[in-house]
Amino acid sequence: MQSGTHVWSRWPTVPALLLALLAGGLSACATGYPRQTRSSALEYLYPRGASPAPPADVTLRTPLRIGIAFAPAPRFANERISATDKQELLEKVAAAFRGRPGIGGVEVIPANHLTAREPVPPAAATVAATIGSTGFDELDRLKAAFGIDLMALVSYDQAQFSETGKSSWAYWTIVGLYVVKGEKNGTETMLDAVVYDIASRTLLFNAAGQSRIAGSATPIDVERALRLASDAGFKQATDDLIVKLGVALETFQKQAATGTVRGPGTPAIALLGADGKPVGGGEDTSGAFGAAEGIAILVLALLALRRG
């Protein structure tokens, strides 16, 4: 199965998952299942039990200030990417977008400002929804603290496989599921960025960067090789993400100029300049019939009826 295709297939069976859990302390070579490290914007923004925010119209005042951060990984997750590495990758993405038209600044938000979400038991789901404990509440606070308008949340998922053809890697993004077949000692990395307007809680655009590093046939030091491949995977996926984000941003800007986020039926969007006036397209206008026209029409009506 090719990377990037949306398919439902090859879900590991429950016994296989149990086996993988039991063998967690062993080398990936022994289990045949991928060693995985991940974080998810989907789980952060919409933790289990939280009600999705309804789509709302968007008003953006340029130049925009954008925050960028990694979506926090689940608590106690065994992350293979350090906080320092994350910061470096985000700085690289931020640098690529600073100074672009309409962007006033890109602020890298330190990881400790975003709280990892824990799965909410079904019984507590209603309570969680009631108290409004979604990631958006935290984004509202970051908006105030950092003076940002938009938030780019980067999710990552990296899987390293020890055997060929016996496992696959499934990755949920905001827009769908990716399934990738594992290659021996291969490293698959996905970085998925979603850009939200914090005020309206509307998804503006998203992009995904990917990397696939083939495994060495006879690595002398498998662990070291996998670690190096992991680092390289994140770097390659970041480079790919920067390119894809650039394309997504241009597409979004063109689409936004037509007045909606993603075409008719999606939330309306208004791009305003610093003076509060619409950017590049003039004003909202109409004719205006008022009292004067009303009187004139009545006089005409009387004349017409008088004759008729």
């Binding site: 397209g281 003039g282 004003e283 909202d284 206008t285 109409s286 004719g287 205006a288 026209e293």
Partner: peptide
């Protein structure tokens, strides 16, 4: 140039 326009008053 204008951004958006709505209305039937011109027809009236």
């Amino acid at each position: 140039p204008i951004g958006r326009y709505r209305g039937s008053s011109s027809v009236a």
